[in-house]
Design a protein around this nucleic acid. Structure first.
Lengths: 323, 323
DNA sequence: CATCGATGTGAACACGTGTTCAGATACGCC
DNA sequence: GGCGTATCTGAACACGTGTTCACATCGATG
């Protein structure tokens, strides 16, 4: 089913068929209508591969999302896909980690991608480097990378947890516990620093600090395994999942939230809004992230050589019932 | 950066470059090594568009996921993406509904897709029809469609809720409430029938029946707005999200689970396992779904004209602490 | 009428690849 | 040496499209 078939059916030249599908091309309106009618009858549409080969935009974009293990990543991916679809870009999604993911990325790079969108993962630097070399624009979110052709979108993690910590101090809390994220993530480090800075400025240190795995279970286990945490009067967690796990463990122990202890998370995943939790948290703004990614994408589309940009997003405090 | 560039650098013909990348082609091993070395130096890889145009597999697959509003859909999509990546297929993900999504699908169909994978949505029939016309294989999950070229993977929804209802009856529960899914979903209808059948066989009818929206909030609201539901001695919900919402509302009302009332969900989303809920539920098996999709995909790849198949998956009962 | 611009047309090209095809080279055997 | 076979090679083609180019038509203007 090619343009030639449509041309034969409509009794026109193949060029005319191509022009009928091209916005603003010289073609008799009646002839265009006839061609489009014929195309519709036969279910024809121009072959994107052949068009892409000839020079048209491919409209293909890759999203590398790592393991997509936690809820926040899934929500971001969903929002990114929806946003990209909205501007006529078609995302090829790559998930995973390690050598498998590396191979996958390498193979997907043989398609003419208009951009590679990265969600923080351990392979980000490698992938960004490979794309740089191929001249494929990269948009990295979650970790700022200073490489040619790489734009960055990142949340002000440090300011965020600082804001949360200050809220707890203003409330009169003095014995703060902290459940941090796994090492190796820039966000783990930055969120921890925001807490430590703010405590230090008040002449305090955390009464207990634990490293979790960004999962609900790890937040739950942290409370069970570390009695000092449960005895704090406030608990700040590096993400919502761990905060939710901690909430459950505290409830099991009969410790009242927020009467006995305040709990704050980070991300504002949809479950934080669930009636069972109603978690006070810092919003890692997905809509802002998506808007920034789309903006970086379209501006680079119009000016491929523009300077790299870094967009920083505020993490506003969302007051609910656990602080 | 084309094969010709590599040929020039390595001092061979362009044909030799193509052969170097083709498994099992006649080429001097030393020459192949030289070509691959040159390609690696320049970061060259064969252009998938040009190759696809010439006849090679595109390895592109589309996944249409609808709104991806609920957690189960997100988990399925994640698993599908990971599974497809594992067999070297690259999924283009399309989200959304209504005319926007229809247009998106129409545009993506101009790529040479090896298959279209559908997650139940209102557009499924339209999309499946369009793909049928274009000769693109369709794998529909969630709703069985009897169209040429359409394979189906579906959970035995009716047997599932029947199994759950029987568990409640065996426990001695007699006053069952039911929170159903929104109309228009085949799964809503089938899950309801499983409940009604089983109750009818025991000479019972539900004490209260409410239609929810498959969301946590709607499950919560159902309990609040319908006192008769809260007075039942067992509650079966058409999905986990609504069961989780109901659990929260029951707790707010001081109604004990499972002492005063049993609660059962459907899907076994990851949150059902969270300590705060520990929900007894029927598993809508994601691993089975993905395995079936991959199998249907690969078998059709080897035999494009094989007969359509429908794979039905059991929904096993997962016993936790709410029944 | 002659000229010109505006509009419309089909032939031809280029995009980058995998494969086919005819031919070249090397090697073993009679 | 002559022959057949196995291995290797580069030129040529086909894939389906968007665009360019030279040219045709037509109405309006001088």
């Amino acid at each position: 089913m090619t343009a030639q078939d449509i041309a034969d059916l409509a009794g026109v030249s193949r060029s005319a068929v191509s022009r009928a599908f091209t916005q603003g091309a010289y073609i008799d309106p009646g002839k265009r209508a006839r061609v489009l009618k014929a195309a519709d009858d036969l279910g024809y549409r121009p072959n994107a591969m052949a068009a892409g080969l000839q020079g048209a935009r491919s409209n293909l974009v890759a999203i590398f999302v790592g393991e997509m293990a936690n809820e926040y990543d899934k929500e971001v991916t969903t929002a990114l896909v929806t946003g990209l679809n909205g501007i006529g870009k078609w995302p090829i999604v790559i998930a995973g980690s390690g050598q498998t993911a590396r191979d996958a990325v390498s193979k997907v790079l043989s398609y003419p991608l208009e951009a590679m969108i990265l969600r923080s993962g351990s392979l980000d630097a490698d992938i960004a480097g490979a794309c740089s070399k191929l001249g494929i624009p990269v948009i990295s979110s979650g970790r700022v990378q200073d490489l040619p052709g790489v734009d960055n979108v990142c949340c002000r993690n440090r300011d965020g947890t600082a804001l949360g910590t200050r809220l707890l101090l203003d409330k009169g809390r003095r014995r703060l516990g902290f459940i941090g994220g796994p090492p190796g993530f820039a966000s783990s480090r930055d969120r921890r620093l925001g807490v430590m800075d703010t405590l230090a400025a008040a002449g305090l240190t955390p009464v207990s600090e634990v490293v979790g795995g960004f999962t609900v279970q790890s937040g739950h286990d942290a409370i069970i395994a570390t009695p000092a945490l449960a005895k704090a009067d406030a608990l700040i967690c590096a993400n919502d999942a761990m905060a939710i796990g901690a909430l459950s463990a505290l409830k099991e122990r009969g410790i009242g939230v927020p009467d006995d202890i305040s709990v704050i998370g980070f991300d504002d995943i949809s479950m934080a809004r669930w009636p069972a939790f109603d978690l006070t948290t810092l919003r890692n703004p997905i809509d802002g992230l998506v808007a920034a990614v789309l903006d970086l994408l379209t501006t680079r589309e119009h000016d491929p050589d523009r300077a790299e940009r870094t967009v920083l997003l505020d993490a506003p405090l969302i007051l609910r019932s656990t602080h």
